[in-house]
Structures are given as structure tokens and as C-alpha cells.
Design a protein around this nucleic acid. Structure first.
Length: 201
DNA sequence: GCTCTTGTTACACCGACTAA
DNA sequence: TTAGTCGGTGTAACAAGAGC
């Protein structure tokens, strides 16, 4: 029943290791509905770009636990709740959320009730005590997410649209077939020019 | 029957750690 | 210092159930 992720969590239970880097993925293929469209053109698995980690190691469990404490929820709801808390700048993937929930259950911090084919996670007294013990850290995490949410709100729809246009055009060009040396140079020059223009804006 | 939602798993990538 | 290993995190794929 337990997959590799579960094993990982029990393998090295180190807290606070690893880098902290902002991460905001583009949510391609995140939701099931979107995923069916978003996967077009993709072959293979795990090809998504990784730009760093939003949470430090072990931080996500505090966020999840806090959200469950506020309102019992199932996995998908928690993904959306985290995304909302981060202003859409970050949304944990299912491959992160479910092992985390399993870990919290194993630790006795949440209890699970099955109903309608879903698992509803509810915080336990142990979980509440754990949250209380780590209150400063939890507050800090939510403050940080609020900052990220505020920062992401600064991106105008115009910029986001233009960025998506660029990505789409580039992808179509690169997947259309082998490019000539001239085409490669022209594309590279255009990208360099755009980068310079952005820097000077 | 189709679509959407939810849960799970496989696999790839990245960074930290560790031994040589 | 460097290469190998390990663990965490990400996306993609898939299955099952619910609602239409």
C-alpha cells in the first residue's frame, strides 16, 4: 500500500535541511481537468521544470496540519487551500500532499475517516499539541506564504499573457522539427533582445 | 456514457550528504 | 575536490467513484 514516498519520509527524518528557494510552478497538469489539456505534447513522465523548493524540508507538514486544524479536509481540498494561501503562486502536487498526509497520520497528528471514496483528515489532540509547540514556525510559514501571495499579485495579466505567448511560440517552434542554424540564431537573438528589453524596462 | 473529482503511483530532477 | 548515493519534491499517468 505505501509507496516510495512514504518510505522516503521514514528514511531520513531530518528537519530543516536543504536550501530554501522560491518556487512557483506553472501549474501545468496540476488539476485533473487541466491536466488532460495540459499534457498535450508531453511525452514521458516527470519532465516538469523544477525551480527550487517553496518549503523547507518538513515545512509543508506544518502548513497542512494547520489547515486541517482550521477545517477537516481531504487531500484535494488541501492542495487548493495551500494554493489559495500562497495566492496561486505555489500549489503542492499530489505526490507531495499525499505522502505528507500519510506521514501525519502515522505520527498520530491526524485521523482519517473514509466516506464516499474520499479520505477526510481531521486533526487529533496530538496534532494540536504539535502545532502549539511549533506555533512560531507555523506563523512564520503563513506569513511567508502571504508575502509570496502579495508578490505574485504584482504580476499583471498582461505580463502573464505575454509570457505564455512566448512559451507557446517557442514550444511550437522547437517541436515542429529540426531547426536550421539560421533559425536557431534568429530565435536566440530574439530571446536575448527580449531579455535586454525586460532588464531595461 | 461522458466528464469531473479524488486518490495513488511511477519516475525524473535537484540538492545535500558522504566516502574516497 | 569529486563522484556516488540518498532523500525530497515535482509532474504525469492512471484508476475508481460521483454526478450529469
Amino acid at each position: 500500500m505505501f509507496g516510495r514516498h512514504h518510505h522516503h519520509f521514514h528514511g531520513r527524518h531530518a528537519f530543516g535541511r536543504g536550501p530554501f528557494g522560491f518556487h512557483g510552478h506553472d501549474r501545468e497538469g496540476f488539476g485533473r481537468g487541466e491536466g488532460r489539456e495540459g499534457r498535450e505534447g508531453f511525452r514521458g513522465r516527470g519532465r516538469g521544470g523544477r525551480m527550487g523548493r517553496f518549503f523547507e524540508q518538513g515545512d509543508l507538514r506544518f502548513v497542512v496540519l494547520k489547515l486541517i486544524a482550521e477545517k477537516p479536509a481531504h487531500g484535494y481540498e488541501l492542495i487548493k487551500a495551500v494554493e489559495e494561501a500562497a495566492g496561486g503562486a505555489y500549489a503542492p502536487s499530489p505526490g507531495v500532499i499525499y505522502p505528507t498526509l500519510t506521514l501525519l497520520e502515522d505520527l498520530g497528528y491526524v485521523s482519517v475517516s473514509e466516506g464516499g471514496g474520499r479520505k477526510l483528515y481531521t486533526i487529533t489532540p496530538e496534532g494540536e499539541a504539535y502545532l502549539a509547540d511549533n506555533q512560531p514556525m507555523v506563523s512564520g510559514l503563513f506569513d511567508r506564504m502571504a508575502q509570496v501571495a502579495a508578490a505574485s499579485a504584482a504580476f499583471s495579466p498582461q505580463i502573464l499573457r505575454a509570457r505564455e505567448n512566448l512559451k507557446t511560440a517557442l514550444r511550437l517552434k522547437l517541436t515542429a522539427g529540426a531547426l536550421t542554424a539560421e533559425q536557431v540564431k534568429a530565435i536566440a537573438d530574439a530571446l536575448d533582445a527580449a531579455a535586454q528589453a525586460v532588464e531595461q524596462a
